[in-house]
Design a protein around this nucleic acid. Structure first.
Lengths: 338, 338
DNA sequence: ATTTTTTATGTAAGCGTTTTCATAGTCGGT
DNA sequence: ACCGACTATGAAAACGCTTACATAAAAAAT
């Protein structure tokens, strides 16, 4: 069943059928109805390949994320997919892993599929070391590239992000204002955005006239999901360095929950003895005991804006290259809000 | 840059270039190298649409899931995507929501994209009421349909699943053998598979000569992620019905964690006073306190097998229509293993 | 009534592959 | 040296659509 069959049955040319399908130029209402009826009768749908060949577009957007099973990235993919679908676009998904090679090959895969644009989900896509971002610049020469929670100056690259630096700074400032003086900062990534969060933390300390104690800035090198691993890591590191702290600011909820476990193991009471703040405000916050205070970065809004930007550029609208939202500290049981 | 440009530069016909690209029939090694060199020189990649038109396949598989931000479904999507990519297939993702209409339209979307096969992720895709599964049967007339954790008898539909009924029965039997007599069963879906789990639970009771107390089989109608909601629901329902129980078997980790919250709220000690068992063995088990015992259904194995089946059918291999794995109760802090 | 403008439709040329069929070239066997 | 059997290659059709251009029909203007 192809466009010829339809045109034959309707007694019109294939051009007319095509016009009906695309609703583009003018077709007499009578003709339109006649064609529509036949189309419905046979349940005909145009061949996407042929259409793609003609239009050089498949109405598909590629999404790359490192790991779509990550609780935070999965949410992002979900929101983005929904918005894209609502906008008439399909979503081609590629998970790349966290290594550069994987990212490059996932990107090539999508470009070969002739996606109309590429959305890269997650701060881990922009490296602090700029040379490593060359592959993104290359891709941007072919199609618009949209970054979620990452920042890269490059033509045809559009960034939608939360100001993680500011949000982290605010969270840290809250801890300081609550009288905390021994804040442990926990992070698990060295992406551009991770570095910015760290900077935000340090800025808060400096602004308050506090020293930055390098021992209290810990990088956890394990799996992004391994809560037990975080706890063990803290046990080991803290006993080795005889490290104490009165609060934890984590770059991620998993880290924060690991820290909660550790604190309890040490016999500390949360939040009486120690405050703990996570980041992402994920489902996990509800599992913790007490429930985890966490920085919310309005993921749903970010994603909806990102897709708007995406579709906007595809329609050749004039679109700002960077859109920055603010984060917000959500107070729960692991901090006492004054 | 298209196949003509390559052929011209290499001084051969486009047919030869095509043959080199597809590695199909015989091409003289010298010619092959010559063509390859030119292809690499220009970084040429064939146009996916044109190829799709010719082959009537884009090497893409459609994945439908209700909600790819669900912690369990996201994992499934992740494993499937990885396996598909390793097998040379792309993944087109469509999230359908839990309503029938959404499922139908997501499916149509994918079929219009001319995917080579459709993978439906999640037990919620097969309804107990068989009429509602007609759209799956229709789809199966066009392309192979692969179901993860769902069961449907239909030509060209292939099911890969965990025997949830048996696994649930085993978990319940464990509780009974541990001396529990007032087991609360908690569930939140009425999919085919959810019903089978419930049946497994009931079978365990019957086999042990226990009565099925309908009051202790609770259906939670709220969001799949709302731990607090589950807790509230239990507070309300249990106080209304003056319900007590000495153990909880939940169809899902979120439900189980909600139950843990409730138990603690009531002043019960876990596991001393009450045992709790979840289902899916997700990341959440590690957040609970004590850590949640949960039924693992070997998702990674399921997914890898499902993709094997998928690629097998596409290669017209002889493939069994149903593959059933066993689940396994993983013991952690919410049960005392004897 | 005639000319001009507008609207509706058809014709045919791409789009970039794959693949069938035909043909030229190569090689071993006689 | 010649024939048959392969092997390597090319020419061209097919895939199903979009769209620029051409044209016929209808409407508006004179």
């Amino acid at each position: 069943m192809n466009i010829y069959d339809i045109s034959k049955e309707a007694g019109v040319s294939i051009a007319t059928v095509s016009r009906v399908l695309n609703g583009s130029s003018s077709v007499k209402p009578v003709t339109k109805k006649k064609v529509m009826d036949i189309i419905e009768k046979y349940g005909y749908t145009p061949n996407a390949f042929a259409r793609g060949l003609g239009l050089n577009s498949m109405n598909a957007i590629g999404i790359i994320c490192a790991d779509c099973s990550d609780i935070y990235l999965a949410k992002a993919v979900y929101y983005i997919e929904g918005n894209l679908r609502a906008g008439g676009y399909n979503t081609i998904l590629a998970c790349s892993g966290y290594e550069l090679e994987g990212k490059k090959s996932a990107l090539n895969l999508l470009l070969n599929q002739r996606v109309d644009a590429v959305i890269m989900v997650g701060s881990n896509f922009v490296e602090s070391e700029d040379g490593k971002n060359e592959y993104i610049r290359e891709a941007a020469k072919q199609v618009p590239v949209l970054l979620l929670n990452a920042d890269l100056d490059c033509p045809n690259v559009y960034c939608t992000m939360c100001d993680d630096s500011k949000a982290t700074q605010e969270a840290a400032t809250y801890l300081i204002n609550s009288g905390k003086r021994e804040i442990l900062y926990l992070y698990n990534s060295k992406s551009y955005s991770a570095i910015k969060k760290l900077t935000g933390f340090q800025t808060a300390l400096l602004v308050s006239g506090m020293d930055i104690d390098k021992n209290r800035v810990l990088y956890y090198d394990g799996s992004h999901e391994d809560i037990e691993g975080v706890c063990d890591f803290l046990c080991k590191t803290c006993s080795e360095n005889k490290l104490s702290f009165d609060s934890v600011l984590a770059a991620d909820d998993v880290l924060a929950i690991g820290a909660t476990k550790y604190a309890k193991k040490m016999g500390l009471k949360v939040p009486e003895d120690i405050y703990i703040i996570g980041y992402n405000n994920s489902l996990l916050t509800a599992c913790n005991e007490p429930e985890l205070s966490s920085v919310d970065n309005h993921l749903e809004t970010l994603c909806s804006q990102l897709v708007k930007t995406c579709i906007g550029t595809l329609n050749h609208e004039d679109i700002p290259q960077k859109i920055i939202f603010s984060g917000e500290l959500i107070h729960r049981g692991t901090t006492k809000h004054i």
